[in-house]
Write a protein that binds this DNA or RNA. Sequence first.
DNA 1: TCTCGAATAATTGTATACAATAATACCACA
DNA 2: TGTGGTATTATTGTATACAATTATTCGAGA
Lengths: 235, 235
Amino acid sequence: MGKYDVKQEVTDKYSLRGRVFHKLRDDILSGKYEDHEELKEVAIGEELGVSRTPVREAFRQLELEGLIQIIPNKGAYVTGITEKDVKDIYMIRSLLEGLCARWATEHITPEQLDEMEENVYLAEFHASKGHLDQLAALDNRFHDIMYEACDSKILEHQLKDFHQYVLRVRKKTLSNANRGPQSNMEHKGILEAIKAKDADLAERLAHQHMINAYENMVKNGLHEAYEREKNYGQN
Amino acid sequence: MGKYDVKQEVTDKYSLRGRVFHKLRDDILSGKYEDHEELKEVAIGEELGVSRTPVREAFRQLELEGLIQIIPNKGAYVTGITEKDVKDIYMIRSLLEGLCARWATEHITPEQLDEMEENVYLAEFHASKGHLDQLAALDNRFHDIMYEACDSKILEHQLKDFHQYVLRVRKKTLSNANRGPQSNMEHKGILEAIKAKDADLAERLAHQHMINAYENMVKNGLHEAYEREKNYGQN
DNA sequence: TCTCGAATAATTGTATACAATAATACCACA
DNA sequence: TGTGGTATTATTGTATACAATTATTCGAGA
């Protein structure tokens, strides 16, 4: 089903609408556009070499994703997320990550468990070497594995959706030299709980893991992270 | 911001795209279309007296809402939700309703509290009279008040979103003569906890309230509710 | 100089035309 | 009778034309 079908994202990369959608989403999330900046259909179309039609359809999707706001007969405006939104998302995520860890404990496959162990092991190595980029990538992957392991496409989509919104903030956070290794230690704890089939513990640890991530982010200055991000370009 | 802006739903009722979107969503949720039924752009357009353009844009939105699946160059297909999906949604909702009750306890306004009290009081009356339709409407409204009272547009949108998905199932459930009054009793408990500023209790009660709703639904036969719904038409 | 308002321009909303792709029908051939 | 392949049709994807709405310019009048 559309919203909860992750594969859809692959297929529609090959249509113009899909390309426009993904391009604009990436640009918005990477901070290329200012908050409240107006997106003009023709301008975007010319920039990407397409007509207004696919641009308009992409706009309608971006609106439902919450990335732009369309005011009828007026225009489409980029909508950032406020600090309160980020906080709310992290609180919601902390609950859902806990639920996800619980379900993953019950449904994880041996293959997924293997990949999780490898992930934590590899991250330990990169942490010791100070490879922050690899560490961030492995961090993302760890969560994706858990999302898949929970065996609920509803919950999986929900969590990936939230992840999108906090991505630009979180990236900065993980680039923080302290948080990366600490985060991996927490992953290790969650992994051990899952291996031990202790769903209660896994839930509690995953829940706390999210709260820690948020508090670390706040401690390091959420607002600054935003500002720095804006001058970051896309990558 | 689009996705989390409820007012948007009002404004776009006045555009053709908006009308098509709402019409199709209502029809899908009310069971007018079979599961996996194909929606043809021209057919829908002719039926509603509009061209393909607004229909296509509405399709793109319905896809993100998860109500249809669009396969590129092939077509748009109605996607129902499975029983497992419903269960997952209820489990997720039970957590989020709990969080919502907690935040509502902290942020509810006197006006919202008044409306909540009135709601419960009125529902008690209709329950005693056996007015199931009014009871169902009041039940929906109780939750909406709480969503608004939690003062988080992220969580509010999230919960309203989920609510959409289980609407057709839940309607049948509440029409059940037993659940309606019982549900209202639970609302009363939540209300009292909020009034007493006991966030922990409110969270626990709201959480349990959702679990009870789900278990009642299962007990009364989720599958049958689905089937009956199909021959229900729109209302 | 300021304000109001009409003319003009810019932009979005919708319809239609054309292109590309997928589904179907139909016929030749074994 | 069954099968493979091609022609036809149907359907979606994209571009463009036109309509409706909103924004802007600019001049008249106070």
